[in-house]
Design a protein around this nucleic acid. Sequence first.
DNA 1: AGGCTATAGATCAATAAAAGTCAAACAAAG
DNA 2: CTTTGTTTGACTTTTATTGATCTATAGCCT
Lengths: 148, 148
Amino acid sequence: MDNLADVIEKWILSKLSRQQDEMVVLRRNEMATELSCAPSQISYVLSTRFTVERGFFVESRRGLGGFVRIVRLPVRRLNQEEAARVVSPDASVGEVLAAIKHLKDRQIISGREAALMSYFFSALESCMTPAERVMLLRKALLAMASAH
Amino acid sequence: MDNLADVIEKWILSKLSRQQDEMVVLRRNEMATELSCAPSQISYVLSTRFTVERGFFVESRRGLGGFVRIVRLPVRRLNQEEAARVVSPDASVGEVLAAIKHLKDRQIISGREAALMSYFFSALESCMTPAERVMLLRKALLAMASAH
DNA sequence: AGGCTATAGATCAATAAAAGTCAAACAAAG
DNA sequence: CTTTGTTTGACTTTTATTGATCTATAGCCT
C-alpha cells in the first residue's frame, strides 16, 4: 500500500491532524512539486478520497492566489428518515450487506459495527423474510444511533 | 492430499504466523507467480478458506497498487473467556443481554455495539434455540474483533 | 472600464495495472 | 454415477497515473 495516491492522502491527513480547527489550505502546484507528481494527481486524490461521503468538504479557487481548502466535517448522526432510505423494502441479504458497507465507508458506523451487523445478517439469513430483514436493519441502526 | 488450494492455504498461513500482528498484505499476481498458479486460484482459496467463519478477515483493492490484506482474528482470550464464563450453554435472552452489558461495562465492547447486539438478540428471540443463541454471540464477538 | 496576460486549478481521455467474476473442464470422494 | 470441490483462462471492473487542454482569477496597462 505505497502508491502515490495513498501517499498524497496520508500527507494531507497528517497536515489536517496538525491543525486544531480541522481545516487546511494548500496550493495544488506546490504540493505536486513537493510530492513529485502531476498536479492532476492531487485533484484525483481530492475527488476520490476527500469527498462529502467520507466526511470532507473541499473548496478551491483558480488563478493568481489560487488555493485548495480542505475541511473535515463533524461526524453525522443517522436519523429516522435516513435509516429508512438505506435499503429498499425487499432487499436481499446481499443488498443489506452492501448497504452496511456503504454506511461504513461513509463513516456512519465503524468497522467493528459493520462486521458485527454483517455477521448477524449472514448467519440469520434463513430465519427471516426480506421485509423482516429490512425492518431489523432499520431498527438496529436506530437502536445503535440512540446509544450514548 | 496436498492439492494446490491446500498449498496456497499453508503458504498464506505460514506468512501469517511469521508476522507478530496477525496481518499480512499480499499482491495477488505476485503470489500467483511465486506459487505457479492462476491468479484466480488465489481468489478461490481466499473465498473458501479465509472466511469470517474460519476466523479471518480479508480486504482488497484493485487497480494500480492493488493488494489483498488478510487478518487473522486475534484470539482475544478475554472475549472468549468472558463470553464462555458468563453465558451458559442454555442461556436465556435475559442472560445473554446481561453478558453483553457485562462486556460493555468492562469496555470490551462499546455502548453502540452493546445496543446493537442487544437489539438483535431481543428481536430474534423467537427464531433461535438457546444453544444457537450462545454460539451466535461468541461468533459475533469474534467477527467483530477481527475488524479494525 | 475593458482588454491583455500570467497564473493556477479543473477536466478529460488515454493507458496501464491490479483484482474480481464466471463458466467450463477436470478430479476426487462417496 | 453423482456430487462436491478444484483449476484454469477469458473477460470485467476498479483504481491509478499522466499529460494535453480548458477555464477562472487577479493584476496590470492603456
